[in-house]
Design a protein around this nucleic acid. Structure first.
Length: 344
DNA sequence: AAACGACTCAACCGCTCGTAT
DNA sequence: AATACGAGCGGTTGAGTCGTT
């Protein structure tokens, strides 16, 4: 059975609101409120509009203290930060920006912020390539010096049994390249990254990836732990299309193997933004020290500002550069297993 | 000045969810 | 428990505006 229409479609006016209609709606709501029933409202005040249309007009345009346009840099950062955490939940994002409507934020993201991010990704990727070359060059220099000094790295006996395990050495002074001023935000992007991974794993060409066994992971973990005081071991290899054994047998080629900005862009477009944020309740981030969101929509704030949501400020980092790709790259660099990672 | 494409944003549509019955 | 309905939400659309040729 189909859903009954909320109003008589044939007898309602559509399209832009006239100043008269605005005045009628505004003065009524200011005097008497909505009465808790938007559907009945237009009839009461003699407007030939759908109740939903009245509600939208009030919330997005007529209600007091609405701000239009002119988003500040801080607001942009808040939007980006929250988008990366919770996806396209515009009403929640709007609740953190007084005077802004979900519609405005959504439009702003779709028409400007997203493009801005893309531009920054390209720029960052170029910088990353340079950094990659520098690290490779300096690592090579370091290894030559190390050999000359007969400064052999002690490989534990249990690791020798796994001599094919990818290993590379890196001058400790270079390790800082793997850190980034914004790495503190790592957790807050985890779910976006998970989604990106998920998208990759959806690719049939990549679907034959075999996840490492617990034992394999432990071996790698121990090995890295035991060696990390002296050297940085980078097992980063973007090989989601090979199994873990093949991956173990792959020599680290010195590259960062970061996902390209093209991949990221394709991801964004394929997912049409919204899927980035389409987390269901089971994907609550509360377990990871984050904020549990959206499991109880009865407490959901709306763009009218009646927010009873938990404060999202813990998810907002106004210092975060407006680039999700930043984080996505940083995460890849900081966590070698990330891009090969275990699907959650 | 006209034509065209790109961009913006108000408004609509269809869906989910919560609540009342 | 099942159903109906309204509120709210996010995605999409298209008219209007702006910039370029």
């Amino acid at each position: 059975m189909g859903r009954a229409p909320c109003c008589d479609k044939a007898n309602v006016k559509k399209g832009p609101w006239s100043p008269e209609e605005d005045a009628t709606l505004k003065s009524y709501i200011e005097q008497k409120g909505t009465g808790g029933n938007w559907i009945a409202l237009p009839q009461k005040i003699g407007l030939k509009r759908c109740g939903k249309s009245c509600r939208l007009r009030w919330l997005n345009y007529l209600r007091p203290n609405i701000k239009h346009g002119g988003f500040t840099e801080e607001e942009e950062n808040i939007i980006c930060s929250l988008y990366l955490n919770i996806g396209s939940r515009w009403s929640i994002i709007a609740a953190q920006l007084p005077g802004r409507t979900d519609n405005d934020i959504k439009n702003y993201w779709n028409t400007r912020l997203k493009k801005k991010l893309m531009a920054k990704q390209r720029k960052d990727q170029a910088a990353c390539r340079l950094l990659e070359q520098e690290i490779k060059r300096e690592s090579e220099t370091f290894m030559v010096n190390q050999t000359l000094n007969h400064n052999q790295i002690q490989v534990p006996y249990w690791a020798e049994q796994h001599t094919s395990m990818p290993m590379t050495t890196m001058h400790p002074s270079l390790v800082h390249h793997h850190h980034h001023p914004h790495l503190g935000n790592q957790d807050q992007f985890t779910r976006l990254l998970t989604k990106i991974e998920g998208h990759l794993y959806d690719d049939p060409q990549l679907s034959n990836y075999q996840y490492p066994t617990q034992q394999q992971q432990q071996q790698e973990h121990l090995y890295v732990q035991a060696s990390s005081s002296e050297v940085a071991i980078n097992t980063t290899t973007m090989t989601t299309n090979v199994n873990y054994t093949q991956w173990l047998n792959t020599e680290y080629d010195g590259s960062m193997n970061l996902p390209s900005s093209d991949e990221f862009e394709v991801y964004l477009s394929n997912n049409n933004d919204n899927q980035l944020g389409r987390f269901d309740g089971n994907e609550s981030c509360s377990g990871g020290g984050g904020v549990d969101i959206g499991n109880n929509s009865s407490t959901t704030s709306n763009s009218a500002g009646s927010s009873s949501w938990e404060d999202m400020s813990s998810l907002v980092n106004t210092n975060t550069p407006a680039s999700s790709f930043d984080t996505y790259q940083n995460r890849s660099m900081a966590d070698p297993g990330f891009w090969n990672g275990v699907k959650t």
